[in-house]
């Protein structure tokens, strides 16, 4: 068992490393090859306020006068040693820009995640135990949540709670209430797939023999839910954690824009409008690292949480 698991873990970690490298290369190629020469365009832009010496230094640093493959090797080498380069807009180190924006986004994303989990559990529990009429309504909620664009939720919440009820002001986006509403905006689309998976696995688990045995021994439904059904039903959602991270990161671009928060999403938006390639490259590849790492952790945890998962089969998949 241990050696089997060890081999499985090693294989998965190797795959994860390859995927991160590939994602970096893909991002680099998309950003630097497709538009021709955006990086020098934005450098030559007289409004950038860079002197000729500055430009020379940046061209030198990124190897812009050399072939793309050399630039890629240079950039990838720096990335592997943890060096993210400098912003073309502000000349600040990218690591500093990302580091400054990160706490705000982390607060937003973790609050959103907590809200999404609460929503999902509430919907799934209701869909399973509420009277049939309400259960049907609750079962269709995830599909409704998936049909409303993020920006519409945000605008409606701002219109209702900021402009009409004055629960918060958009001029102070970092206040607790404003953060809460921003988090709800981000949480609603995230909670939908989570609720769907929870409902499906709850349906599945409650039909298993062990649930039947527990019921026939006189265990009440609520006790059965709390003691026996929650753990196995939550397992498939562990595999979704990585997916949810991606949703949270992608959604933060829109949510932060609407609520006027300064975070990773705003950094991305500024980098896109300013054609700030090093910043874009860093944010995208760092989010790939986070995604792959979370995915790896979920993969490695699943066989430990659920002994039914066969490690050897998984390693070959």
């Amino acid at each position: 068992m241990t050696s089997g698991y060890g081999r499985f873990a090693l294989a998965r970690a190797g795959q994860a490393a390859v995927v991160v490298l590939l994602a970096y290369v893909l991002t680099f190629l998309v950003i630097s090859v497709l538009p021709g020469d955006a990086i020098t365009n934005s450098l030559r832009d007289p409004q950038s306020g860079l002197s000729e010496a500055d430009i020379q230094r940046i061209v030198q640093y990124y190897g812009l006068d050399q072939p793309v493959l050399v630039q890629l090797a240079l950039s990838l080498g720096r990335f592997l040693t943890g060096e993210l380069g400098f912003s073309l807009q502000s000349n600040l180190p990218v690591a500093q820009i990302v580091g400054d924006a990160l706490p705000s986004t982390l607060t937003l994303a973790s609050t959103a995640l907590a809200i999404a989990v609460v929503f999902a559990i509430g919907i799934a529990y209701g869909a399973h135990y509420a009277p049939p009429r309400w259960a049907g309504v609750l079962r269709s909620i995830p599909s409704f949540f998936l049909s409303v664009p993020n920006f519409v939720i945000g605008l409606v919440l701002i219109e209702l709670f900021a402009f009409r009820l004055h629960a918060f002001t958009t001029t102070d986006p970092n206040s607790a209430t404003a953060t809460l509403f921003a988090a709800v905006t981000l949480a609603i689309p995230v909670s939908a797939p989570l609720a769907e998976v929870l409902i499906a696995s709850l349906d599945h688990e409650s039909r298993q023999e062990y649930a039947l045995v527990a019921r026939s021994r006189g265990l009440a439904e609520t006790q059965l839910f709390a003691r026996h059904l929650v753990k196995p039903s939550a397992l498939p959602s562990v595999a979704m954690v990585a997916l949810i991270m991606g949703e949270l990161l992608g959604g933060s671009v829109i949510t932060e824009t609407i609520f006027g928060r300064d975070g990773i999403g705003t950094v991305v938006q500024k980098a896109v409008t300013g054609e700030d390639q090093p910043v874009l490259q860093a944010v995208v590849s760092l989010s790939a690292v986070v995604f792959v790492a979370v995915n790896l952790a979920a993969d490695l945890l699943t066989p430990l949480l659920d002994p039914r998962v066969n490690v050897r089969e998984e390693a070959n998949a």
Binding site: V19, V20, L22, A23, L26, T27, V30, I31, M245, G246, E247, L249, G250, G251, V253, V268, V272, L280, V283, V284, S287, A288, F291, V292
Partner: peptide, 10 residues
């Protein structure tokens, strides 16, 4: 590995 919306933006 790259969040879908972020990839689309890039």
């Amino acid at each position: 590995a790259i969040p879908g919306f972020l990839l689309a933006v890039v």
